[in-house]
């Protein structure tokens, strides 16, 4: 090892150090809780709407009961208003990570975030 160290120049060591730092950074970046990238809204298996999670906006989506209002804000998406009777979809709050879903069952709308990975420590949730 000593011999190897002696045979490398300062520039060699700098290159190796920079690249090793890059690898270390990639571990942290890839290992972090992955943020979703796009919001998708589906109805009956058909894609109704798709938008980047990073762009703030409010959108009205039509289901059999009427208009469901969706808000994308600060990297999160939530249902603001819904014509369904129980408003359970509004009560589900906001989602931000890939794989997470919101649903308005009576109005047949599914909102999900598509991205590179999953945010939770489990693959599926039984409830």
């Amino acid at each position: 090892m000593k011999a190897l160290w002696a045979r490398t120049t300062g520039l060699d060591r700098l290159i190796v150090a920079v690249l090793l730092l890059g690898i270390l950074a990639s571990f942290f970046l890839l290992g972090a809780r992955p943020q979703g990238e796009r919001v998708l809204v589906e109805r009956g298996g058909r894609l109704l709407f798709s938008a980047p999670l990073a762009e703030n906006r409010v959108v009205d989506l039509e289901g059999p009961l009427g208009i469901t209002r969706l808000e994308i804000r600060d990297g999160q998406v939530r249902i603001l208003a819904s014509p369904c009777p129980t408003k359970a979809c509004i009560g589900m709050g906001a989602i931000a990570c890939a794989g997470e879903m919101l649903a308005c069952v009576p109005n047949e709308l599914l909102v999900r975030i598509e991205g590179a990975g999953k945010g939770a420590a489990h693959d599926l949730l039984s409830r």
């Binding site: 489990h122 599926l124 039984s126 409830r127």
Partner: peptide
């Protein structure tokens, strides 16, 4: 290659 991880609410 690993078991599914099933979260229980």
């Amino acid at each position: 290659g690993r078991p599914w991880r099933i979260g229980i609410q």
